[in-house]
Design a protein around this nucleic acid. Sequence first.
RNA 1: GGCGGCAUAGCCAAGUGGCCAAGGCAGCGGUCUGCAAAACCGUUAUUCCCCGGUUCGAAUCCGGGUGCCGCCUCCA
Length: 493
Amino acid sequence: MSLQIYNTLSKKKEVFTPLEEGKVGMYCCGITAYDECHIGHARSAIVFDVIYRYLRYRGFNVTYVKNFTDVDDKIIAKANAEGKDIAEIAERYIKEHNEDMDALGLIRPTVTPRATENIKGMIRMIARLIEAGLAYCVNGDVFYSVDKFNGYGKLSGRTLNDMMAGARIEVDEKKKNPFDFVLWKASKKGEPWWDSPWGRGRPGWHIECSVMSQRYLGETFDIHGGGEDLIFPHHENEIAQAEGATDKPFARYWIHNGFIKISSEKMSKSLGNFYTVKDVLKKYHPEVVRLFILQSHYRSVIDFSDEALRFARGGMERFYSTLKNIEEMKSRNGSFDGLSEKNLSGINEKYLKRIDFLPERFVKAMDDDFNTARAIGYIFDTIRLVNAYISDKEFIPDAESMFVLDSAKRYIREVGKVLGLFLDDPVSYFEQDRRREAGKRDLDRDTIEGLIHARNVARQEKQWEKADSIREELRKKGVVLRDSSQGTIWSVE
RNA sequence: GGCGGCAUAGCCAAGUGGCCAAGGCAGCGGUCUGCAAAACCGUUAUUCCCCGGUUCGAAUCCGGGUGCCGCCUCCA
């Protein structure tokens, strides 16, 4: 079995072979720190977090680099508007970003370099590009000469001629070709600047990623990723810069995640239809967001809505209630020390044999271009199997069956960890869920629990009508009850 | 105008040449339950946007059409 990755560069799935055995270098374009993270950033971050986790699960030693763009037009604009320094603005949004990503349960990348810490490296690369005849300086601005680099367009699958045909880019008199892009910008009044051989200025956007990725991962490295919108021009330009400067291949596998749409429309600031990570996390558990995202393939476009998240929440409930059930049965039914798969009998053996397939099937799905949707389908299969086992007439809660349930739990947790799912304690999961949902509907916990108590008193006295009317009253508020031998549990629909 | 993607049940969504087209949600019938809920069992696409073609065989490959979307400007 081998991992296959869809490579944007070849437009095909390819067997993944790292440059150096057992090691992977991966770079992802991070954020420009000028505003809060939205759900689109979350998708990209979660997708690459899962890729990172999976590569590690498969035994690779991964160096994961994700940058912060901390000098840019939008940051400057915001800094000027607020009368603050760009560093202060960048710092604020980097902090916000880290809070959001931590809340979403992302593993921090190995290195998170910032553009302003790498100005020297950028100047060196630009100088090399000028030497190589691939860039030119006009009045303090330096441009990359796209028609001097003959692989230009190879990532996005277009040629300069194609692009000329419908070009609707503004013509800059200083550029030799309208697609030439800026490597170094002469700074205007009120803008931050650094000294360079071409005068005071600041870097263009694309150069930082070529420089920082190579700094930490080498001139040629394994994986480069980002949102699909970055394919052109950003990643195309990164290739032109890096390969132009070193004459060596740049990233070997290019991975791009699909976009999030809102009601079938592109999510964008200008349409005003975006959701911030913070807003979404107020309403849903972070793993619900993850499940929603990972239930579709990472390259497909997904439609974000409250309804979609509610469906994901329903799925999450199924996972956690089975996990909770397992924990409860185990705590009531003692230990299973000394047991192994070999000394099981009857249905215990039969079910465990089928539950055993999970890790293997999981790897098979994930090896196929990180097919998290299929992998999650397999976890659902396992959940159903566990529930069927517990409901089986022959099921006896003894040491053998506890061993089976514990194995099931371990498998689910093992593969869940790779997806960043099921990491919470089930009791805590439901507690948080109740709190969030009750908050949304403005329900008071004490009132609910008081009514549940009154109903249980009525039930003990077999006053079924009274008990049912209380339940109906709660139901109207969206509260659903579940009676069991352990007591009554409530949740919000 | 150029380049690219997608179209699978009521909804979401896997599947890229061959067992009954995964899985989730919703629905229906049943088991369980005082009644429910949850869970379990059964059931829900003779068919994968349309029309041709290749093949013993296609949702899957090829050609044409229709519809939706993205990129070509900052964008995850």
